[in-house]
Amino acid sequence: MVHGLGNKIGEGGCAEVFEWEDGSKIIKLAKPNTIPAAIQAELHHCRIAWACGLPVPRPYDLVNVEGRSGVVFERIYGEPIIKRFVDRAVEQSRLQQPIDIMDDYVDAEITAQLFHQIHSHSVADMPSQRENIRNDIHRAQYLTEAEKAAVIAELDRLPIRQQLCHGDPNPGNILLRNDDAVIIDWNNASTGNPEADLAEYVIMIRYAILPPHLPNEASVALDATRETSIRLFMEKYEKLSGISYADIEPWIAPVAARKLVADGISEEEKVLLIKEIRRRLRIR
């Protein structure tokens, strides 16, 4: 056992997460498919978010463990919103209770406040969101060159803003700690339009396919509440920011196209995204 490295506590597509030192910290160690620059970028982005006073894990340092790049963060003891959703769905099914939409309202309010807090900051020394989206669309293998060009043309017509954006705003990255929310995984952060972050969130709620290891009750509950969850979230976010669902609509196709290069979503979900992109291109 490497000095300081404790038990493995999590894993994602690009990294493994271990306890570090006395357990008050964690270390994210890159997998072979992740270049050291990506780990360095996550630390840099999280330091910027921390300096803004945002609710993020305190970032520490880069380390190297047996040839693997890693970054050390404060350990956050919290429950992901997605876990709370799954547990609640299973319990309501067990008790044969109807889905309580007020629970969704609470989660929507927490999430809207968190995103608005992030988007209220304008920062420098961050990647360009627009360039990231454009590059990902070019790499998408599921679209024809004409379709890519059409989506990029839509992207180029959209207004330009310079706000801090998380880049991967999903319920798995939002941890509830007592009455507060903490957001993790800043590797895709950028400077750009909050509408793109919001489009990412809407697309995920609308089209996400839950992993097969999760109980079927969770998928049933998600299908029953997708559009209501989006509506509740947008009502709260619009009150805080003035940004409405109509402002997000033009971003759906470009953001859906860039998601086609993501490793973390299933082929089934990508098929849904392709259908949505092509539907939108036909009605333009």
Rank of each mutant, 00 (worst) to 15 (best):
205 I>Q: 03
105 Y>I: 07
241 S>T: 05
29 L>G: 12
105 Y>W: 08
187 N>W: 13
39 I>P: 09
12 G>N: 04
120 S>P: 00
141 Q>M: 02
121 H>S: 10
55 P>V: 06
211 P>G: 04
135 N>Y: 01
15 A>L: 08
125 D>V: 07
13 G>V: 12
252 I>N: 14
249 E>M: 11
261 V>K: 10
25 K>T: 11
50 W>G: 02
98 P>W: 08
161 R>F: 05
137 I>H: 01
15 A>P: 05
162 Q>E: 07
182 V>H: 03
228 T>S: 12
199 A>P: 02
134 R>G: 10
241 S>G: 07
251 W>Q: 03
56 V>D: 00
108 A>K: 05
235 E>L: 07
236 K>Y: 03
97 Q>G: 13
258 R>L: 06
246 A>W: 00
227 E>T: 01
220 V>G: 07
273 L>I: 05
246 A>L: 10
232 L>F: 08
105 Y>P: 03
126 M>D: 00
122 S>F: 01
266 S>Y: 02
79 E>K: 15
199 A>V: 04
276 E>S: 13
190 S>T: 02
226 R>I: 04
237 Y>P: 07
4 G>E: 02
217 E>Y: 01
197 D>L: 07
212 P>D: 04
206 R>D: 04
8 K>T: 00
92 Q>K: 14
136 D>N: 13
210 L>Q: 02
207 Y>E: 08
237 Y>R: 10
187 N>C: 13
215 P>V: 06
94 R>Y: 04
240 L>F: 03
40 Q>M: 11
40 Q>L: 15
50 W>N: 08
208 A>N: 01
30 A>R: 05
265 I>K: 12
165 C>P: 09
90 V>C: 10
255 V>N: 09
116 H>G: 08
254 P>C: 12
164 L>N: 14
114 L>F: 07
207 Y>V: 03
228 T>F: 10
72 V>K: 14
130 R>C: 03
103 D>F: 15
174 I>R: 09
274 I>W: 05
90 V>M: 09
152 I>L: 15
158 L>Q: 12
132 N>G: 15
181 A>H: 09
262 A>P: 00
49 A>E: 02
33 N>F: 00
46 C>N: 15
129 Q>S: 09
147 E>K: 13
185 D>R: 14
21 E>S: 13
107 D>Y: 06
44 H>D: 11
229 S>T: 14
277 I>D: 01
165 C>D: 09
20 W>Q: 12
74 E>F: 07
184 I>Q: 08
224 A>E: 06
235 E>H: 10
2 V>F: 00
159 P>T: 06
132 N>W: 01
118 I>W: 00
1 M>Q: 06
12 G>C: 04
270 K>G: 04
265 I>P: 02
85 F>R: 14
55 P>F: 04
16 E>G: 10
139 R>I: 03
177 R>E: 15
175 L>V: 05
132 N>Q: 14
120 S>L: 00
232 L>H: 10
257 A>V: 13
129 Q>G: 11
93 S>D: 10
167 G>P: 04
14 C>W: 04
103 D>V: 11
146 A>T: 09
113 Q>K: 11
72 V>W: 11
106 V>W: 08
89 A>F: 07
119 H>W: 01
126 M>H: 02
101 I>S: 13
136 D>P: 08
224 A>Q: 08
238 E>D: 05
44 H>Q: 15
35 I>K: 11
140 A>I: 03
54 L>G: 13
95 L>R: 13
267 E>G: 03
95 L>I: 12
172 G>D: 07
191 T>N: 00
219 S>T: 15
